[in-house]
Design a protein around this nucleic acid. Structure first.
Length: 566
RNA sequence: CGGUGAUUAGCGCAGCUUGGUAGCGCACUUGGUUUGGGUCCAAGGGGUCGCAAGUUCGAAUCUUGCAUCACCGACCA
């Protein structure tokens, strides 16, 4: 490709709307343009990268024995009614009507369509297991699209679904997909980790997320500093403190200070106090059971996912309002405490390990010191409801927790029978009986990977693409081609030769100053620059500049070809 | 959805307080100059100032409504 025919579209200035570095660089290097909130046009350079990612994903899925299909983006609402998700999915599901006023949705995922398909197509256990995938545009009406294509509303996703008669078979395939995912991210050249994950709204049993490590990531990942253990903080277990709880040594005492003031003005440590949150419970008939108290050590944070998984806590987690708290306890939220509450009290393991602690007194601007659970607080339930923090012992039993940020680029689930049951997806088993299938589902955010790769690979000049997904393998940059016939001839013939060899090369034939050309190619992240100049032509050489290392070397023109034969 | 802020040329911004129908830098066009790291000089083209209504002789500027975009928003009890 010649730059004179190419939609280069680089920007010198950073558009004000771009927050994260990948979004800024994607705009500046001319990869994407914004169309509306969360919707993007992919320009030629961006599309090349997207297609490369897509192809690597496709090749590895095929290698793992998955069949490629393509399902429609617009899906009948009936299917979603059948699975029960039409109501469950919420406002992220974009609903629309056709000219006959029939109800449709824009597919945020394709479990319904594929399960229906397989229910119709398969009839015998002999056809199992089955593994299918597609690479298709999804639409999720995000509350707050941000970070460019990282969290867009429309995005390109690879989704795969597997169907099995038995759970053991699913587990085998799950492992196979896990391995395929590792190969994919290895080939993409990204620094990634598989991490244990919560199954979230899709439901199911086992689940792993694949995260690209980057400070701008939206997820916290807990690692062990002594083993391979990695888990999303949502899911990472906070172990109970080791050793016996100390016996009470102080008497309970009422203090005329708000808990917060008490901690600030005296030497009461934060981690020797507890904070109490009143949340909506699942029981609705009995007034006192409408709420549940969650108690955490002062320095810890509530883990919403863990709390929602408790049977007596309403999901989604809903905090009681100040009015509700006043009505029930007759105090402000800041003075709540576990002693004497009329609702179920669920205490985090670490908070439950405290003795002689400090807490709110359920009266405005009053606190207790020297509180002890059994002696002062009656019945409590102990559970793991906090986020792990750096330095906690790792739940794997080895080492301590370190927390890093990650960008979720892949997610695999053992789905189980949820959809197969709802959509009546079954085959005849060996005994001639109808048997509901067990499913797995496996996603990769193709467009998100492009942004994640940039977050992880850039410098002050621009993008530094991993080789496997660079839009061009190399660029030919002639010095002062307009003046030197020799430079022009050499550059042209080099270009022709590389094209013949099938090298993806961009020939910068613009009448620009060298600085402009260098800056553009560095911004776009082309891995290799072939600089043709008078300076080296007497020796029949060109200069080679490596975008990643910055290294410059001279190479004989006849040897350039060999750089690309692998 | 709630809070905050923004909306003036393709991009980045000034002008608004103190109403008199627009300006800067980059980009773009033309001519010259320069040519191994975003040259320099000159001359140009491009905007019904987000939309609608109101106040006024007169609105980018004041008022109201709407739209769009962006940032922040669990807990911190």
């Amino acid at each position: 490709m010649r730059t004179s025919q190419y939609l280069l579209s680089t920007l010198k200035e950073t558009p004000a709307s771009a927050e994260v570095i990948s979004h800024q660089l994607m705009l500046r290097a001319g990869l994407v343009r914004n169309v509306a909130s969360g919707l993007y046009t992919w320009l030629p350079t961006g599309l090349k990268v997207l297609k490369k990612v897509e192809n690597i994903v496709r090749e590895e899925m095929q290698r793992a024995g998955s069949n490629e299909v393509l399902m429609p983006m617009v899906q009948p609402a009936d299917l979603w009614e059948e699975s029960g998700r039409l109501n469950d999915y919420g406002p992220e599901l974009l609903r629309l009507n056709d000219r006959h006023n029939r109800d449709f949705v824009l597919g945020p995922t394709h479990e319904e369509v594929i399960t229906k398909l397989v229910a119709n197509e398969l009839s015998s256990y002999k056809q199992l297991p089955l593994n299918v995938f597609q690479i298709q545009t999804k639409f999720r009406d995000e509350i707050r699209p941000r970070f460019g294509v990282m969290r867009g509303r429309e995005f390109l996703m690879k989704d795969a679904y597997t169907f099995h008669l038995e759970h053991e078979c699913l587990e085998k395939t799950y492992q196979k997909m896990f391995d395929a995912y590792c190969r994919i991210f290895d080939r993409l050249g990204l620094d990634y980790r598989p991490v244990i994950a919560d199954t979230g709204s899709i439901g199911g049993d086992a689940s792993h997320e694949f995260h690209v490590l980057a400070d701008s990531g939206e997820d916290d990942i807990a690692f062990s500093d002594a083993s391979d253990f990695a888990a999303n903080v949502e899911k990472a277990e906070a172990l109970a403190p080791s050793g016996e709880r100390e016996e009470p040594s102080k008497d309970i005492e009422l203090v005329e200070l708000k808990l917060e003031r008490l901690i600030k003005t005296t030497d009461t440590p934060l981690n020797a106090s507890v904070k109490t949150l009143l949340v909506q419970g699942t029981a609705t008939d009995d007034e006192s059971e409408k709420f549940v108290a969650l108690v955490l050590r002062g320095d810890h944070q509530l883990n919403e996912v863990k709390a929602e998984n408790l049977p007596s806590v309403a999901s989604p987690l809903t905090l009681a309002t100040e009015e509700q708290i006043s009505a029930l306890v007759n105090c402000h939220s800041t003075s709540l405490g576990p002693k004497g509450l009329s609702v179920e009290v669920i205490v985090d393991r670490s908070a439950a390990h405290l003795s002689d602690f400090t807490c709110g007194a359920n009266e405005n601007n009053r606190s207790y010191t020297g509180v002890n659970w059994q002696r002062d607080c009656g019945d409590i339930t102990v559970a793991d409801i906090r986020n792990v923090v750096e330095g906690d012992p790792s739940p794997c039993g080895k080492g301590n927790i370190v927390i890093k940020r990650g960008i979720e680029v892949g997610h695999i689930f053992q789905l189980g029978q949820k959809y197969a049951e709802a959509m009546n997806c079954a085959v005849l088993n060996e005994g001639g009986k109808n048997q509901t299938l067990t499913m797995g589902c496996y996603g990769i955010g193709v467009s998100r990977i492009v942004a994640a790769a940039i977050e992880q690979n850039h410098d002050k000049y621009g993008i530094k693409w991993p080789k496997a997904i660079a839009p061009f393998q190399a660029a030919i940059v002639p010095m002062n081609m307009a003046k030197s016939a020799r430079v022009k001839e050499t550059a042209e013939s080099l270009y022709e030769q590389l094209l013949q060899d099938g090298v993806e090369v961009l020939f910068d034939d613009r009448k620009e100053r060298p600085g402009v050309m260098f800056a553009d190619h560095e911004l776009m992240g082309t891995p290799l620059l072939l600089i043709v100049g008078e300076r080296n032509l007497d020796e029949k050489k060109v200069e080679l500049k490596n975008r990643i290392t910055g290294e410059k070397t001279l190479i004989a023109i006849e040897d350039v070809k060999a750089l690309f034969s692998n």
